[in-house]
Each structure stands twice: as structure tokens, then as C-alpha cells.
């Protein structure tokens, strides 16, 4: 029964990673850049929801919506100001700029909200679920996290595969120049991708802070790196890959923490990643790219 409960909290943590990883993987697939500031957008989302509930006294659902709106605007703003001027620049220059944006967000948060950790109260109003005569307790947050993740993945899959915007996204990710010639607005598509990714980051931020209720300017950094790992794990650029990678990473981390060592759980996660990449060099669901001479 212990194992089952660890397993379920692993899926729950993995769902959060998966939602963050989606942001990484979509931006990578379409703009071909590693957006290292993504983790800090999560943190901003957490603070927004925190402010909405404690300072303004708004209901939880409204606070999530508020966080999503702010993060979407923030995401588009970052893209327009910092990344768009570098569309033609080498990828490493964009990477360093993304790191600069990440420093900026962290230090801005430090100035606004100070380094003192804020204790975040879960926005999920449900009680824990007790199964098998109270032997298995699943918290409301866990259930909501998993459901939200499934809803997001299905919605995103529909958007990407069934709508016109999704078609544009796939076209841009396949070949930017050809898409432009076919009348797809590349800049608009990239902006939309950033908007979706940032809105997802806001949701992930709220869920993360509900499960681990400590909010600091550096809250988003480590989950950001882990989610990036999850995206690579599943094959970066692939939406089902991000989902699979996130869930697996969460399960491995929680089981490692429970059965091997609390301090070494991160090391285990990264060791599994290395092994997977050695067997499948482009991740679990990644496409193999042939190099033409």
C-alpha cells in the first residue's frame, strides 16, 4: 500500500513536470530555442496566485485565471523584447539571453517580494480521498493535479492537430521559411506558442505551490531544470514525449526518495536520463534526424 501511495504522488509530481515540460517542448519545437526563463515564469505564476488570494481576497479559481493572464502577457512581452530581435542570431546567443531573462525575473521577484519564503495555502478546496479503509490517502491536490494535466494534454493535442493555429505551429516547426512562403505568419505563431507555454507555466506554478507550499524567488529554478530534463527524456519537440517524460521523471524521483535516499533522488533521476539517452539518443519519442552530407 505504501508503494501505491508513493506511485500516485509520483504521478502527481510528474503531472506538474509534464505541464512545465510542455512549455519547453513547444517553444523548442517551434522557435528552436531553450527557454531557460520558463522556470521563472512558473514562480511568477505562483506569486500572482498568492497575491490574488491573500492580498486581494479573490476566490481560488479567479486567482488561477489572474496568474494565467499575467504570465501570458509576461511570456509575450519577454518574447517580443528579448527573443524576437535575436531571431537570426546563433542559438547560444539566444540561450544566454534567456539566462539573462531568468536572472532578471528572479531578482525582480527578490526586490518585490523579498527572499523570505511565503507559505502558500493550497487552492484546492477538496478533502483527501480515503481508500481501502483509510490505508491509502490521496490528497485533493494530488487528484486535481492529475486531472488538470490530463485535460491540458488532451486540449493541447487537439489544438495542435485539429485547429488552424496548430497547423501553423506544425508548419513553422517543420520549416520556418517554407511556412512563411505559404502565408503562415511565423512571428504570430511563435508569439502564440509563448503565450500558451506561459499560461501553462502559470497553472503549473499554482499546482506546484499547492503541493509544496513554499514560495521563494528561486522556487521555479529546480522544477524548471527537471522539466527541461523531462522534455529531453521524452524527446524534445514532441508533446506526447513531454507528457511521458514528465510522468516517468516524477515517479522515478518519488520512488527514489522513498526507497533509496532522499539526498540522492535527483542523482538517480539524472542517471536514468543518461542511460535512456545512451540507448535512445533522441529521447523516448524523439524523431531521429538524418544528417545529409
Amino acid at each position: 500500500m505504501d508503494f501505491l501511495s508513493y506511485f500516485i504522488s509520483g504521478i502527481s509530481l510528474g503531472s506538474i513536470y509534464a505541464i512545465i515540460a510542455l512549455g519547453y517542448t513547444m517553444v523548442y519545437g517551434i522557435a528552436k530555442m531553450l527557454n531557460f526563463a520558463h522556470g521563472d515564469v512558473i514562480m511568477v505564476g505562483g506569486y500572482m496566485s498568492f497575491m490574488a488570494t491573500t492580498n486581494f481576497g479573490w476566490p481560488p479559481l479567479l486567482s488561477v485565471l489572474f496568474a494565467m493572464v499575467v504570465c501570458t502577457v509576461l511570456g509575450i512581452l519577454i518574447e517580443q523584447l528579448a527573443y524576437k530581435p535575436l531571431r537570426a542570431a546563433p542559438s547560444l546567443a539566444v540561450l544566454i539571453t534567456a539566462i539573462g531573462v531568468s536572472y532578471f525575473l528572479q531578482n525582480a521577484a527578490l526586490l518585490i517580494w523579498s527572499a523570505n519564503p511565503k507559505s502558500f495555502s493550497s487552492i484546492v478546496p477538496f478533502d483527501s480521498l480515503r481508500l481501502f479503509g483509510g490505508k491509502l490517502i490521496i490528497s485533493g491536490t494530488t487528484i486535481v493535479t492529475i486531472i488538470v494535466c490530463i485535460v491540458i494534454i488532451s486540449a493541447l493535442n487537439t489544438i495542435v492537430n485539429k485547429t488552424k493555429v496548430g497547423k501553423a505551429m506544425r508548419a513553422v516547426s517543420e520549416d520556418k521559411d517554407a511556412a512563411q512562403l505559404m502565408g503562415v505568419s511565423v512571428n504570430k505563431t511563435i508569439s502564440i506558442t509563448f503565450a500558451i507555454g506561459s499560461a501553462l507555466a502559470a497553472i503549473a506554478g499554482v499546482l506546484l505551490c499547492s503541493a509544496y507550499p513554499i514560495l521563494m524567488p528561486t522556487t521555479g529554478a529546480m522544477p524548471g531544470i527537471k522539466a527541461f530534463t523531462a522534455a529531453v527524456f521524452g524527446g524534445i519537440g514532441s508533446i506526447p514525449g513531454a507528457f511521458l517524460g514528465g510522468i516517468l521523471l516524477g515517479i522515478i524521483e518519488i520512488l527514489g526518495k522513498a526507497y533509496v535516499s532522499t539526498q540522492l533522488s535527483d542523482a538517480i533521476v539524472f542517471a536514468v536520463l543518461i542511460i535512456i539517452l545512451l540507448v535512445k539518443p533522441t529521447g523516448l519519442l524523439g524523431k531521429k534526424v538524418l544528417v545529409k552530407v
Binding site: L34, I236, L264, D266, A267, F270, I274, L277
Partner: peptide
């Protein structure tokens, strides 16, 4: 030996992973 079998972003993430592993192991 393992890292140089990969390329590009995948190589980058594996070096990141090794760096984190070294940090975590040194910590215990």
C-alpha cells in the same frame, strides 16, 4: 565516453545531468 556519443542539445543535457550527479554525490 558516454557524453561524446551524443550531439547538440542532447549532449548539453547529459553534461548538465553529470554536473548535478556530481553535486548530489559530493553532498553525501
Amino acid at each position: 565516453v558516454p557524453v561524446l556519443r551524443l550531439h547538440g542539445d542532447y549532449l548539453a543535457i547529459v553534461t548538465l545531468a553529470f554536473g548535478e550527479i556530481i553535486k548530489n554525490v559530493m553532498n553525501v
